[in-house]
Design a protein around this nucleic acid. Structure first.
Lengths: 255, 255
DNA sequence: TAGTGGTCTAGACCACGTA
DNA sequence: ACGTGGTCTAGACCACTAT
């Protein structure tokens, strides 16, 4: 990645720069390596720092770079394949062998959007179970699981234990219900302040929001989960193996 | 949304602005309504245009706004639920009733990343079928479907017809194979120049990339599809109904 | 304390859609 | 021709991390 002048082309400078940097990453850098700082890079390419940053932002969005304030910009490893439930087999959250760690749980009034999906009315309280998911030592997702109190009627007595213990109790009660089906949706969002902290990112960081509806007997919605995955580091897989290597290598998203 | 001074808070101005605007959108604007232009808005909130734009970018990423050069910024409708295959039922692309329109098809050497997934070796040619998906009159996705020539051996004779007709021929041949399974992955990407044009967005626009591997008899990878969905307007659904309304309404992503 | 990325400013000009 | 959002500049200062 030498000192280069950008050609005069009709495409935006930052976009061209993104391509040039992307190719440099493929050929001249290895995973974990530290890039020159933004001021130096901008000077090398003869652009303003803001323009250089626009290119870096793109590459970070694509999972090619990782930037940390006070530290620097490093070449990111390939995205982690994260299994989001096998498509054939429907299981309750908290079933044996899932990768989630219960954090805590409280009894709250559901947000309006959630109350609409749970057909229980906005007045009925729900157990809010917070969980987090860690893969390869890195936090990749934060989940809010909403379980209407009516779905786990035997739980009311066990209100005492707080924190993770309480979360586990709610999940344990869930397993006792018959699971008839589930329904998933994936969309792009931006991390709220609390999610961002849990995922070790800044607020507004791009996230993949996976919403799952769990149906119990009679088609009743027994629980709703809203899971927030780091979009920069995760590839969500919906199959039986989580290790499909596509979109890696030199031309993953080259223009 | 009156002329307001931003409080002096420790959170970034653009983030606070995003929240303020988000609440204004919920309470004072309706879908399709045009916002004041960026220069006016920036002046109203007493910030530089670049800062205001940072807030608008966030809201556009979250699917709340739609910005078009030369036109203006409008309030976006709720995201469209786009069914990405029912999870229980595996079908070949191009099966009766799918929402894709064949565009054209060529015979090419596969990109390295694709060749790795198809276990056919990098030398063997593949049929590249281009398709596009339209929902509610809007283009929502562009697909590149890679079919190794060996998967559709009877096709070699029909090399003559070009364009959509050729694409349909490849898809028709595919249906004759037995489909043993499929495997999906979803990740965030940015639109390449050609995808961007097809999706009516600028290059670099955020997209959800859905990669699907189709397995034929013996676990052989018979085809690979890379579909690029507009991240701002789409919510990908993996269930039997595509109309789950969650994450809509006032508190969809409020901080 | 030094160096990094993150935020913010006040301008300028360009590309595009519409009238 | 005009108004819109998109790009770009050259600075300044802040927040954070490591030494």
């Amino acid at each position: 990645m030498g000192t280069q002048q950008l050609e005069t082309v009709p495409e935006p400078k930052y976009w061209h720069l993104r391509t040039v940097l992307s190719e440099a990453l493929d050929s001249e850098f290895s995973v974990g390596e530290i890039l020159p700082n933004e001021r130096d890079l901008a000077a090398r390419f003869g652009v303003a720092r803001a323009t250089l940053r626009q290119a870096l932002e793109q590459l970070e969005l694509e999972g090619r770079l990782q930037r940390r304030r006070g530290v620097g910009t490093t070449v990111a490893p390939p995205r982690v394949g994260v299994a989001v439930g096998t498509t054939e087999q429907h299981v309750w959250p908290g079933a044996a062998g899932d990768d989630w760690q219960p954090v805590d749980s409280t009894l709250e009034a559901p947000p309006a959007a959630v109350a609409g999906v749970l057909e229980t009315g906005a007045e009925e309280l729900v157990h809010l179970v917070r969980r987090s998911r860690v893969t390869h030592g890195q936090p990749v997702a934060a989940e809010l699981l909403y379980v209407p109190a009516s779905s786990v009627p035997d739980l009311s007595a066990i209100d005492a234990p707080a924190g993770a213990a309480r979360a586990r109790a709610v999940l344990r009660e869930l397993q006792r219900l018959a699971l008839e089906g589930q329904e998933r949706a994936v969309e792009l969002g931006s991390a709220r302040a609390d999610d961002a902290k849990q995922l070790d990112r800044l607020p507004g960081a791009p996230v993949l929001v996976v919403t799952t509806r769990y149906f119990a007997e009679g088609g009743r919605t027994a629980a709703v989960s809203v899971a927030t995955y780091r979009a920069d580091t995760c590839r969500l897989t919906f199959g039986d193996s989580g290790g499909v290597e596509i979109h890696e290598g030199p031309e993953r998203q080259a223009s």
